[in-house]
């Protein structure tokens, strides 16, 4: 695998992030390649969730936070004043740690993002809902009960529903914030298969505390500690021949 093969979709340069006075990210520079999976690993509290939430400016909703440095998506600084954060979030989808379906029907959950973006055509809605559910490998399980409340689904199904919900608005990037930490191993396997398939269309960034998962699904891996990027390279390289002693200690389970 050669990094020159694919374009760089997301590029962060010297990214700093503060919660009030506390510095949660220190000069993080990572490149996420288009149509590849980039995994962010590291011990709890290393800033990996903070990092991924800067990519769709989800941290904006937390009071007293501040970003320094650059985040470029397709070369555009997403923190520039003229950027519409709403449009950014449509383009950069996010799947959260805990499945968070809305208390609506399965259908309405998927249609939600379409409707807020102004889609009214019933037929078009139905088509997109089906396409998104197929894309999230959930269609066969729910096609006969689209009117049921989303809470009736199992945890794993709920998480795939949330993935389908993000797919519906046709994002370019999908961010996964520890998507499997709240679901069981079988459901986890399904979500991992799904991520594998998604990367043919989307740029995927996934935060995980599970190193095996990172090794299984990702093409590139960033290892973070205490808010700093320790090492960033192709996944194969990180897991077989890490350049940094800290990385080696972490992946071999000496701490974390």
């Amino acid at each position: 695998m050669n990094s020159a093969e694919t374009a760089i979709k997301i590029r962060t340069r010297d990214l700093d992030f503060y919660y009030g006075a506390a510095r949660a990210l220190k000069k993080v520079s990572v490149d996420c390649h288009d149509r590849k999976v980039t995994a962010i690993i590291g011990p709890s509290g290393c800033g990996k969730s903070t990092f991924i939430r800067t990519l769709n400016r989800m941290n904006d909703v937390i009071a007293g936070t501040r970003v320094d440095g650059e985040i470029l998506i397709d070369g555009q600084n997403i923190n520039a004043p003229e950027v519409d954060v709403v449009e950014l979030r449509r383009r950069v989808g996010m799947v959260f740690q805990k499945p968070n379906p809305f208390p609506k029907s399965i259908y309405d959950n998927i249609a939600y993002g379409l409707r807020i973006n102004g889609m009214r055509d019933r037929r078009k809605l139905e088509e997109t809902v089906e396409k998104s559910l197929r894309g999230a490998a959930l269609w066969d399980e729910v096609k006969d009960r689209l009117d049921e409340n989303a809470f009736a689904l199992s945890g794993g199904q709920q998480q795939r529903l949330c993935i389908a919900r993000s797919l519906a608005v046709e994002p370019e990037v999908i961010l996964f914030d520890e998507p499997c930490s709240a679901i069981d191993p079988i459901a986890t396997a399904k979500v991992e298969d799904l991520i594998e398939r998604l990367k043919s269309t989307y740029t995927v960034v996934i935060v995980t505390h599970n190193m095996q998962q990172a090794a299984r699904v990702s093409d590139y891996t960033a290892f973070m500690m205490l808010g700093e990027l320790v090492e960033f390279d192709q996944t194969e390289k990180i897991f077989t021949n890490p350049a940094n002693k800290l990385t080696e200690d972490y992946i071999t389970g000496r701490f974390g």
Partner: peptide, 10 residues
């Protein structure tokens, strides 16, 4: 619910 909606571009 709020974060979910925002993340979809609401």
């Amino acid at each position: 619910y709020r974060e979910g909606a925002l993340a979809l571009g609401a």
